[in-house]
C-alpha cells in the first residue's frame, strides 16, 4: 500500500460516524488519562488505574446481566471504588497495593462469574476485555467532553496545588492546601476516564493510558510543567498513530494504541539517555 493509498483509506474510515466518535472520545480520554496519570505515577498510586479498570469490567458485566445501561450503572460504582481505593491506599494498617489487588481481582472474578451464568453475552464481554472501536455512542461523546472539561479545568485552575501535593503532600497540607480533597478529585476523575475509555481500549489495556505517557515524558523532561505538557502531547499522538495503524492493518485499536505508547516510551528512554550522556 502506497502512502497515498493509506491516506485515502484513512480519509474514508474517518468519514464514518462511529469512527469520528471513536476519534473524539479516544483523544479526550487519552489526554485526561495522561494528565491524571502524571499525578498518579508520581505519587506512586498508578495501580489505582489498573484496579479501577477491573472494577469497571465487573460493573459493566453486571450491567449487561441485569439489562441496565452500562455507563449510568458503571460510573457511580467505579467512583465509589475510587473513594475506597484512595482511602485504603492511604491507610497505615492495610497495604494500599494489596488492597487494590484484592479489589481488582475480586471484581474481575465476580464479573466473569456473572458472564458465565448469563447466556449469549460473551461477545459484548470480550469487547469489554479487549476493546472495540465500534463501542462509542453519542452518550460517550458527551460524557468524554464533560470529563475532559473537568480535567482541563482542574489542571488549569489548580495546577500549582496539584504540583505541591504531588511533590510533598505534608508541606502542601501544612500551608493550608486541602490535599485530601484534591487527591479524591483526581481519583474520581480517573474513575470516569477509565469507565469511558474502557470499552474502546479494553479493560485489560486502559490503565496503560494512565502509566505510559507520564513515564515517557519523565524520561525527557526534568520539570513538572514539562512532564505534564509532554505527557498530554505523547498520549494524544500515540492514540492517533495507534488508531490509524489499527484501521490500516486491521489490528485491535486498544492493543495498537498501547503498542504506539510502548514505542514512544522506548524512544523517549533512549533520547533521554543520549541527552544525559552527552552532558557528561
Amino acid at each position: 500500500m502506497s502512502i497515498g493509498e493509506a491516506f485515502g483509506t484513512l480519509g474514508e474510515m474517518f468519514s464514518y460516524g462511529w469512527m469520528q466518535r471513536a476519534l473524539i472520545v479516544g483523544t479526550l480520554v487519552s489526554l485526561c488519562a495522561a494528565l491524571l496519570g502524571v499525578m498518579l505515577v508520581l505519587r506512586r498510586v498508578s495501580m489505582i488505574g489498573d484496579g479501577l479498570s477491573h472494577v469497571g469490567f465487573g460493573a459493566m458485566a453486571a450491567a449487561l446481566a441485569i439489562g441496565a445501561a452500562p455507563l449510568p450503572f458503571a460510573v457511580p460504582l467505579v467512583i465509589a471504588a475510587a473513594f475506597l481505593l484512595i482511602r485504603l491506599s492511604r491507610s497505615e494498617r492495610v497495604g494500599g497495593d494489596a488492597a487494590v489487588a484484592v479489589a481488582a481481582s475480586s471484581s474481575l472474578a465476580i464479573g466473569l462469574i456473572i458472564v458465565s451464568l448469563g447466556p449469549g453475552m460473551n461477545a459484548d464481554v470480550s469487547s469489554y476485555m479487549y476493546g472495540s472501536v465500534l463501542a462509542m455512542n453519542s452518550q460517550d461523546v458527551v460524557l468524554s467532553l464533560t470529563l475532559s472539561a473537568a480535567v482541563l479545568g482542574l489542571y488549569l485552575f489548580s495546577y500549582n496545588r496539584l504540583f505541591a501535593i504531588t511533590f510533598d503532600e505534608g508541606f502542601a497540607t501544612a500551608t493550608g492546601v486541602r490535599s485530601g480533597l484534591y487527591g479524591t478529585l483526581v481519583a474520581v476523575l480517573t474513575a470516569v476516564t477509565v469507565v469511558v475509555g474502557m470499552r474502546m481500549m479494553g479493560a485489560l489495556l486502559i490503565s496503560s493510558l494512565v502509566v505510559f505517557p507520564p513515564l515517557a515524558a519523565m524520561r525527557v523532561c526534568r520539570s513538572f510543567r514539562g512532564v505534564t505538557v509532554w505527557s498530554g502531547v505523547i498520549a494524544v499522538s500515540c492514540f492517533l498513530v495507534g488508531i490509524s495503524a489499527s484501521c490500516l492493518c486491521g489490528t485491535p485499536v486498544g492493543a495498537s494504541v498501547v503498542a504506539a505508547d510502548l514505542v514512544a516510551l522506548l524512544l523517549c528512554t533512549s533520547v533521554g539517555r543520549a541527552v544525559r550522556d552527552s552532558k557528561r
Binding site: 500549582n160 510533598d168 508541606f171
Partner: peptide, 9 residues
C-alpha cells in the same frame, strides 16, 4: 517550581 510552591499558602 519547588521554591515557588512555598507561596501556595
Amino acid at each position: 517550581e519547588v521554591v515557588l510552591s512555598g507561596r501556595l499558602g
